[in-house]
């Protein structure tokens, strides 16, 4: 007993000697830890900032209207992103049409109707969570296999790309929709059911409308991830030179990340500038999409 108390006393004494100011917060170890944390933050931001700034410097001279209106060309000064931008719009649009209804429906089923006691429902839940972390190229291979199974010859068509990106976006949409549905208080559902609505009417008229902001945010974030992807589309044999505007779901296409990727692999320095300018444009579009997501969330989110 005496040993214990003396031990404790020594500990308190040493603490008061080493950590003079306000207890342990400013002991050498915590200061060191704080410095390490700041360093991590600095490294992460420093790298990002350097990347953005060098891209801006490289690409600024080519950030003009030609970048948007011209077709790709063998001469860098005549080349532009027009078909790539239109291709991105087509593919992402088709992806949205393909995945949002499917993802929302799947989430509604899992959240509102599925019996969580059944093992297969739990297995599906677990897998959806896991799918969100799968590398994107795997989705490209999956889509490639699926299209080959259906006997599709030209896999580099808009609907093929939308399928690969759809697989990529689907888990994100399902998870965010479920989160949004979970945010709707149980009382709303119970009130609706008590007034004689069927479960389907409850979902359709109460729960879903209430969770639209969350769903929209999740969908936009998912689609903006898809917009920046090149890997799954390259697996599908994406085109790197398209000199026409894509005009339908079966049309050939290229997207902005693919065109940028193609330009960076060219030896001429002018193409690298062009790639930088394209990257800036892509960054701006992504920023706008994420801004829209934040706006929708803040503007329409209901507080219960």
């Amino acid at each position: 007993m005496t040993f214990l108390t003396t031990g404790l006393g020594a500990h308190i004494r040493s603490a008061s000697i080493h950590g003079k100011v306000r207890g342990g917060e400013h002991s050498a170890r915590s200061v060191l830890f704080l410095i390490a944390l700041w360093l991590c933050l600095f490294v992460a931001f420093g790298v990002l900032l350097t990347l953005i700034i060098t891209t801006l410097i490289d690409g600024f001279s080519r950030l003009d209207s030609r970048l948007v209106t011209e077709y790709p060309a063998s001469a860098p000064e005549r080349a532009g992103l027009r078909p790539a931008i239109l291709g991105s719009i087509w593919v992402i649009g088709a992806t949205a049409l393909l995945t949002i209804p499917l993802g929302v429906a799947a989430a509604v089923h899992l959240e509102e109707f599925a019996d969580r006691k059944k093992w297969f429902n739990r297995a599906i839940e677990l897998n959806v969570q896991n799918l969100a972390a799968v590398p994107s190229i795997v989705y490209g291979l999956l889509a490639l296999g699926f299209l080959a199974l259906l006997g599709v010859q030209n896999k580099n068509i808009v609907i093929g790309g939308a399928l690969a990106l759809g697989l990529l976006v689907l888990p994100v949409i399902i998870i965010s929709t479920r989160e949004a549905l979970r945010g709707v208080p149980l009382e709303i559902r119970q009130g609706s059911l008590a007034l004689g609505a069927t479960p389907l009417q409850t979902v359709w008229r109460q729960t879903l409308p209430a969770s639209v902001p969350g769903i929209a945010t999740g969908a936009i974030l998912g689609l903006s991830r898809a917009l920046g992807e090149a890997a799954p589309l390259l697996v599908l044999g994406a085109l790197v030179f398209v000199s026409f505007d894509p005009n339908g779901l079966l049309s050939g296409y290229t997207t902005m990340p693919i065109q940028i990727f193609n330009w960076t692999s060219r030896p001429q320095a002018e193409f690298h500038e062009l790639a930088s300018a394209g990257s800036i444009l892509l960054l701006l579009i992504l920023l706008a999409m994420n801004g829209l997501a934040i706006f929708i969330r803040n503007r329409y989110q209901q507080r219960w």
Binding site: Y71, A73, A75, N156, A238, L239, V240, F241, S243, F244
Partner: peptide, 17 residues
């Protein structure tokens, strides 16, 4: 393909790698 577009604008030439 780039040069050909000036001659036959109606033909869609695509290149993949």
């Amino acid at each position: 393909a780039d040069m050909y577009r000036d001659v036959e604008a109606g033909v869609n030439v695509t290149v993949a790698t």
